[in-house]
Amino acid sequence: MVKITIKDLTFSYNSSAILDGLDLVVEGSEVLGLVGPNGSGKTTLIKCIDRILKPKGSILLDGQEIDRMTQQEIAKRFGYVPQSSSTPLSTTVFDTVLMGRRPHISWRVSDLDLEKVAETLELLRLEDLAMRDFSQLSGGQKQKVLLARALCQEPNVLLLDEPTSNLDMRHQLEVMEMIAALVKSKKISAVMALHDLNLAAMFVDKLAILKGGKIYAAGTPADLLNAKNIKEVYGVEAVVMENLHRPYIVPLRSVNSEPACGQ
């Protein structure tokens, strides 16, 4: 089981601090959801963990400082699923997923690499799309292909940056179900930035609420998703329903706005 220990992580764009002395631990086969308002540092944190950005502070992967790991080694341990779905011009789904084998291959593609890609496509039920052009896929299909590419890296940790943004309700659920099931079946960890608190309540094992570049609170969704935290972090008055075996958030109004008619 993998363990990521983040200590005193700081990152600034120009002079404005996005992450400000952040501490966090991710341990075992679990889905950790990063939630928080826009600009709270969710995406930046994910990019720092994958060394796409270079922060100050310390990130340990199983006790090893990732600063001392090569990019190739990091790519074998972390699989990153970006928010936007760009690929090279005219690339098939198979080739897009095959790109995930890049950390493992020098130039020649082995039979094992092809096997891994075919298996992953089948695992995510994408085999019928294998030879389709990536650009012709729907948003939900693209998201699954990017997930397949990250899985082909055979990572210990999946890092997902808002994997459900721009997806309809059904595809949001499909993608989240798939990620949660993969984490359990492959015994890996997943760290994902999310905006939808209800989706987070349904699918994540643990939550970390970010505010102003720091961890405001960390724990289970049931412990953290309450009206008080939502008001303090988002500035939103909300009702949290508890009768669905999980918190269900109904936002009412932003704290500074006038009440809507009839309320």
């Binding site: 990019k47 060394r51 090569t70 074998k76 972390f78 990153y80 970006p82 890049r102």
Partner: peptide, 10 residues
Amino acid sequence: AGDETAKSLG
């Protein structure tokens, strides 16, 4: 596939 993806692939 973009700079971020390329970095994440090593």
